[in-house]
């Protein structure tokens, strides 16, 4: 196709999409519990720097990923305390969290620019990765890529089929009803927020440890906002979030490859294409009002106070 190898394109697409997929699946669970956390960008960049520092200091990429998730979760805890216990506005708190994360990570990362982290090993042996077509696409990645897909499956199954999932959804749909049934609304939401923070942090760490790999101030460059858009794009369905993330990563990877293959397509249009696709999809989704309304958690963004 146009002198572009679809196999390497697919492999590049998966790697480019993993950070936003991780952040999106975490945010999806947060929103399913009725909380809107707009601080994804801030949590991602905190994950990127915490993961990078841990990886460079210890020499272990795995400790890096754990630290990235922990960094994102730690930042999300600030959000959780402010919004769940002090009942602050979720939108404003989330935006503040992004600003705080960007500034804090720049401060923490001052001494870490221009360093190359230890490389993250691929999961499968060389023989499998050398297979035609399926090798690079299915077996050519590191653990985190498979983990991200497994996480989507786990969230899809967990939300739909388990008691925990039912409780999370109940809290997200009607927190007063869930409360009167005896569920700890605040505790459940805090846990969901922590999960979302850890996922975003892991996505950030993937950016600084695998995709680039190096630390740079502000290196998430809007990935967190794309993850937020993907949750809406997916109408809060986990597998659709995977499709959305791969679509986004795919277009980004494709446009660079079209240029490299010297296909005559306006570059500016290509650069803008992921955003155009998002707008089109959002328009299509929102034209079907009933379905969109059915999927959005009813208590999304509303403050809960156990007074009634």
């Amino acid at each position: 196709m146009f002198g572009i190898d679809p196999v390497t394109l697919a492999a590049a697409l998966i790697a480019a999409s993993t950070p936003i997929l991780l952040a999106a699946i975490g945010e999806l669970v947060v929103e399913k519990s009725g909380v809107l956390n707009l601080g994804v960008e801030g949590m991602m960049i905190m994950g990127a720097i915490c993961g990078f520092i841990a990886c460079v200091t210890t020499g272990s990429p795995w400790l890096g990923f754990v630290a990235g998730a922990a960094g994102g979760a730690a930042l999300s805890l600030i959000f959780g305390v402010l919004t769940q216990f002090l009942l602050s506005n979720q939108v404003a708190t989330g935006l503040a969290l992004t600003l705080f994360g960007l500034g804090m990570s720049a401060l923490m990362g001052e001494d870490y620019t221009g360093i190359n982290p230890p490389l993250t090993p691929k999961l499968f042996p060389e023989a499998l990765r050398q297979l035609e077509v399926v090798g690079p696409i299915l077996f050519g990645h590191d653990l985190i890529v498979y983990l991200s897909v497994a996480l989507v499956a786990a969230v899809a199954w967990g939300l739909a089929r388990t008691r925990t999932g039912l409780i999370i959804r109940a809290v997200g749909e009607n927190h007063d009803a869930a409360h009167s049934l005896g569920y700890k609304v605040i505790r459940i939401r805090i846990l969901a927020i922590l999960f979302g923070g850890a996922c975003a942090g892991l996505g950030g760490a993937y950016l600084s440890l695998v995709r680039v790999p190096s630390w740079t101030e502000g290196m998430t460059a809007g990935a967190g906002w794309i993850a937020l858009a993907i949750v809406v794009f997916a109408s809060w369905r986990p597998w659709r979030a995977l499709i959305g993330a791969y679509l986004f990563g795919g277009i980004a990877a494709l446009q660079l490859r079209l240029q490299a293959a010297q296909i005559d397509i306006p570059v500016a249009l290509l650069d803008a294409s992921p955003y155009i696709v998002t707008i089109i999809v959002l328009v299509i989704i929102s034209t079907d009002r009933t379905r969109a309304a059915l999927n959005a958690p009813a208590a999304l963004g509303r403050v809960f106070h156990a007074s009634g």
């Binding site: 394109l9 590049a12 480019a16 740079t216 460059a221 660079l256 240029q259 570059v267």
Partner: peptide, 24 residues
């Protein structure tokens, strides 16, 4: 082969552009 990235500094995009060229 030239790839325009429309940025002076964006490590993720620069890395992706490099890999796209290498694949070519």
């Amino acid at each position: 082969r030239v790839v325009w990235t429309y940025t002076w500094f964006d490590p993720a995009v620069e890395a992706d552009a490099a890999r796209a060229l290498i694949d070519q």
